[in-house]
Write a protein that binds this DNA or RNA. Structure first.
Lengths: 348, 348
DNA sequence: GAAGTTTTAGAGAACGTTCTCTATGAGAAG
DNA sequence: CTTCTCATAGAGAACGTTCTCTAAAACTTC
């Protein structure tokens, strides 16, 4: 009698229907809280579902209708700003019927494109793309078939929603702060961006614009200096090394990401410079990194949690068909001053 | 003529079959590299697939066979040790047919259980659970129907595979290091763990055991002191405050996670103590945090990348049926000494 | 109380795969 | 030249939902 070790048959909608003495159509309607089923029936079906511990088979649903799954595309799990966004998304969707699944594609447009496609193949109901490096055309194509929210890029389109931070204003806040402290030679370290991704208004581009405008506003346009480096410890380090060993080194450096600021810090440290006495340093995004006691980095807060929540809310509106026109939400950044910025040693 | 704006019909296996002039069964076989199709046919079908830009419908596959999706359960995206593991998984699976999707459940056994169920509902082929807080029974039940690898917990089971770090040895390495520097009053800050999750050998429990054994080995059993606190900045802060304001404060504190060590750092800082002069501090996991210039935390490296890769490899073996017996992989930790530990000011 | 309207319930066809059969043909063995 | 085997190809039934119909029942309204 060694047979039949796995009688674990899945409970299906048919079982529930039988148990409740109704048709599968009714059960399906209850499942989707669809119109056209009496209160008494509802009750009966729900009871049957509970009794049998029924759980809908997502793959089967995906064949016909929704999968009740939201996909989030992320390039970099290490960026804790993205973690803030994610938590916002999760909190917003917490007691909805939707499940959030994350595709951590890593950098590289091809990897990201592959992940986006994988999500589409899995019939996800909606997509949230955080600063995608994939060519814009591909995102637009995707968005025309699946509700999509793009976070970060300022390029607006009528086919997807967007959530952005006013990065230009954020850059201005930092410049204003540094200028008010007495700095004049202020350099910016920004991401080089993905070449030929065809996004014209990425966060780093808008940030750079804001920086240049602010410098101009303070009559410092001739001292403006933008250095392109990856948003990583290493990228920041290289940028710091180059900037700080130049003939006329800046007295303050701002970066487009906190982690890059820490790379600059490392470079400064190696060159025997102390922060903030010899160099004022500001990051961006106000991640957990910036707040750590040994770090205490001045940064710009972007309310990632709120951005994530907004994105999720907008996406669901689209998924459920409550809205058919694209919209864009812009967040206002806020400067958070910590001890990595102070007046310059000597005014240049 | 305003009709038919969306002729974007999905390319299905039937289209491919027609285009290649074969049956759908053959296409399906080619898709799964299954046995029983001639080389010539293969060629023809593949050409047709490429020509039509066919991509399999994951939901439909899920109804019958595999979904070619691997689910990873994570409690906390912020823990960069988990990011290491994830990258290991991703690299291992990079050019396989599988897609990795992450469920970031957050803390709380119920949330995690919900996420695990959601993954199962989506017919994922295999699950990697990173230090799940879900009751063990539930994980075992899940594992009996879906191939599963548990990372972190040392409890072995014949129903799922495991990848663990020899946390006991790791704790010993830190104690040995601190003792060799002259410390005798060494405290451990470890996670309280989830009560009643029924895991008997969680990382923190094994770590604590290793710590106690090492202390005993050095005849310091009477000085051993374990403080339970969450692995977060705040948890570390509270632990640090309590420990450092006690009548006989430790001269060295080790924690089970880097982030908690930084919380202790903050407490020390507020109390006017400097690291490492007044207090030696060691973390665990050797995350990116520990290596940051302003931090420079002594820590224990766990080779997260390798753990992730090992887990992925084991899981695929199971999914593809190449192995039917459970196995456990153990990694050896390595001490990484940085500047947060040094000899004590006065030997107590 | 007849005719029309609305609401609710059920039948049954999709959806795009996989998979178990059965059919066919080619080669091997007698 | 049969018969048997084996490899390959195709037919068609699942899989668990959703969704469009149609049927029946319950109200309106005159």
């Amino acid at each position: 009698m060694s047979t039949a070790p796995k009688p674990k048959k899945r409970v299906t909608i048919t079982d529930v229907a039988q148990h409740a003495g109704v048709s599968t159509a009714v059960v399906s309607r209850v499942l989707r809280n669809a119109y056209g089923v009496s209160a008494a029936m509802q009750e009966r079906v729900r009871a049957a579902m509970a009794e049998l511990d029924y759980r809908p088979h997502a793959a089967a649903r995906g064949m016909r209708g929704r999968t009740y799954t939201i996909g989030v595309l992320l390039d970099n799990i290490r960026n804790s700003f993205f973690a803030d966004i994610l938590e916002g998304i999760r909190d917003q969707l917490h007691d909805s019927d939707y499940t959030v699944l994350i595709g951590a594609a890593g950098f590289g447009a091809d990897n990201q494109a592959r992940t986006i496609r994988a999500m589409a193949d899995r019939q996800m109901d909606g997509l949230i793309l955080i600063a995608p490096g994939t060519p814009r055309s591909e995102v637009l194509a995707m968005a025309s078939t699946t509700p999509t929210v793009v976070i970060g890029h300022h390029d607006s389109a009528d086919v997807h929603d967007s959530v952005v931070d006013a990065d230009g204003i954020g850059a201005g806040l930092v410049v204003d702060h540094l200028v008010s402290l007495g700095h004049r030679r202020i350099a910016l370290v920004a991401s080089p961006g993905t070449k030929s991704s065809l996004w014209k208004r990425t966060p780093e581009i808008v940030l750079t614009e804001g920086y240049l405008e602010a410098m101009e506003r303070h009559d410092l346009a001739d001292r403006a200096q933008v250095f392109h480096a990856a948003y990583s410890d290493d990228g920041g380090y290289k940028a710091g090394m180059r900037l700080l060993t130049s003939p006329e080194p800046p007295s303050a450096i701002m970066t487009g990401a906190d982690v890059a600021a820490l790379g600059v810090y490392r470079a400064a440290h190696e060159l025997g410079l102390t922060v903030p006495d010899d160099l004022s340093l500001a990051g961006y995004n106000n991640t957990a990194l910036a707040a750590l006691t040994p770090v205490q980095l001045t940064s710009v807060d972007q309310a990632g949690h709120t951005m994530g929540a907004a994105a999720a809310k907008m996406l669901i509106e689209r998924v459920e068909g409550h809205r058919d026109r694209a919209m864009q939400t812009t967040m206002t950044p806020r400067l958070v001053v910590r001890s990595s910025t102070s007046g310059p040693r000597t005014v240049t």
